[in-house]
Nucleic acid binder design. Structure first.
Lengths: 343, 343
DNA sequence: TTTCAAAATGCAACCGATTGCAAAGAGAAA
DNA sequence: TTTCTCTTTGCAATCGGTTGCATTTTGAAA
């Protein structure tokens, strides 16, 4: 008596002296069902508080109307923009989203992928964890031909399409900007080079230096986890450098900003002593003084594009394999942190 | 030939000359199954690339091992901490999380709740949208006795437990701190008063004023959406006030910080002209200069507590109804934005 | 060798919606 | 009234695990 019995289509069928088949069709607005019957069924369903059993339905239909999303973390301005964009497009198309975080760990990513696989998401959208080196955990999706799409942190290891920005170009622009401001000893701080985003920005950085005839020095490339704490450590490291850089290009605003604060606390003048360029156009870039020059990253649009690409594929409008990768535009936003008095 | 056939327990059973029941039990490590049989089954499953069909399983078991989470937005430091905390605890207990955002809209919240209901999550964790006024959309959960738990932005309308901080106390402490710093005309900026968090902080603010014998003036309470943009507008409003406040207590760091920036841009000295206190201990509070005094908000712990409370209930360890609400500690962090030269 | 409890496995019903095909009903034309 | 064509509705199998209960197997004690 405590346990409320679930209402099923059979209950409705019985009460209305119909077959379950008819009820099922009526609830799904099947055209073969008489309009009056349909109305009667819907009314009864409402009255009884009927809820469709997604499992029974999915089991039979073999489709879930669900997209899986695996991201490293939810805590950046960029990532939450991406997800907001995704949610809007997905819902509009009648899809749900199953979001999970790898928390930057390969192990979690693996287990999340497994879950998504068992839950039979209709498609999977992934931005890779920090330390993912192998891609076997995606093999199931490839084998079963469940569409798989990477965004931001991609891999072409699996031949799956990816949605990215042109990190090489962005890195190059950021570096060139510093060079134009008169910097000659530019430190580049970035994340794990396994990830395309960081490797490419580094490539862009190098390219810009070469183009300007500046020697590329390995000791001027620092890899860390781009966290706020890493920014503080970075500042310490800079202060202890024999030859201090006159410009710093950091692959993350949050890291850059914390580094700047620490340096300022130690008496450095920014951008006079050191010019800074960040990445992402995070909120903080406009809070720090001097405001941080950065690369604007179209998070919301990336999310929208990722989901609409996926859905078009699922609907058969456009095969996903036809595109190997989509590149989005970025833009350098120049602010005070990098503008030095020209001399 | 293109279509890879799904492998089922029946396939495994046939190949191994066992019954499906045995295979099922073996895959679930049922103790009644001989260890050697279990190993054989697992090996075969691996070999064939078998994946459990969650739907069939859920359909039969009537449990999903999934917790639904509905949050207004993912984009605050606080919220992502909450979710990170939740994810860890949930995964450890073998639960998945279905996360969705209401994007602060009642309509979205309603539709998300419906989805969670149809997907038969084992429990639902909610932080209410900005403008939710009615709670009928949760009626299904209450009726079917699916545990429902609110966190941060709660309601006791439904008699469901909530996990909160003591917003009254926090609001009072923040205000008292400003009073101690010599402020006598304190502006309080907060969100929709439908939400407990904002209503309570306001109550705390009033209480502190009264206690200090300062008149409570309605024109010194501003309600906005606490966004970055709202912060800029707020600054404009302050500059146009006839009697400018000498202290501002904002219910969100992000909003406070943008307000501060704008005021500074207009030549105000902070904290000398106006002292600021924010809320949440967001990253930006340490980036702004002067650093923002704020209330530390235990996001991660709140997430952990919410999920562990839920799971204990689901496991029958502790009925959720026994607790009507759990209150967590907060802490005022005093930084430069509110510290005025004592005179 | 017989006996019997414990361990291991199998049988078969069940969860609830979907859908191809068959059948019944309705209405119009002959 | 009969015939025939659309409309509607129903039958019954199916999706793939799970589980109470029955049955078989195992191994040790009698």
């Amino acid at each position: 008596m405590n346990m409320e019995k679930e209402v099923t289509i059979y209950d409705i069928a019985e009460l209305l002296q119909l077959s379950a088949a008819t009820v099922s069709r009526a609830l799904n607005d099947h055209p073969a069902i008489n309009i009056k019957t349909r109305q009667k069924v819907n009314a009864k369903a409402l009255e009884l508080g009927y809820r469709s059993n997604t499992f029974a339905s999915n089991l039979r239909k073999k489709t879930t109307q669900t997209l899986g999303v695996i991201v490293p973390r939810l805590n950046s301005h960029f990532m939450s923009s991406v997800l907001a964009g995704m949610e809007v497009v997905a819902n509009k198309a009648g899809y749900h989203m199953l979001i999970s975080q790898s928390l930057e760990s390969f192990q979690n990513e693996k287990s999340n992928v497994r879950t998504m696989f068992n839950n039979r998401v209709d498609g999977l959208l992934v931005s890779l964890a920090y330390d993912t080196e192998t891609y076997d955990h995606f093999a199931g999706f490839v084998k079963k031909k469940v569409p798989l799409l990477f965004f931001d942190r991609v891999t072409d290891y699996l031949g799956c399409p990816g949605i990215v920005i042109d990190n090489i170009k962005a890195g190059q622009e950021a570096t060139e900007h510093l060079i134009q401001q008169g910097c000659v000893r530019i430190l580049h701080v970035t994340g794990n080079l396994l990830r395309n985003v960081y490797a490419d920005r580094l490539a862009g950085y190098r390219q810009a230096l070469r183009k300007a005839g500046i020697e590329v020095r390995e000791e001027l490339v620092v890899v860390n986890d781009l966290s706020a704490e890493a920014g503080v450590d970075l500042a310490q490291a800079i202060m202890h450098m024999e030859h201090r850089p006159d410009g710093v290009f950091v692959s993350s605003d949050v890291c850059a900003v914390n580094c700047m604060k620490t340096l300022q606390g130690a008496g450095y003048q920014l951008p006079e002593d050191i010019a800074f360029v960040g990445f992402n156009n995070d909120h903080v870039s406009e809070i720090i003084e001097p405001k941080l020059t950065t690369i604007d990253y179209p998070g919301k649009q990336m999310g929208e594009l990722a989901v609409s690409t996926m859905i078009n594929h699922l609907k058969g409008i456009q095969a996903i394999d036809s595109t190997s990768s989509i590149t989005m535009h970025t833009r350098l936003i120049v602010r005070a942190s990098s503008q030095r008095a020209k001399s």
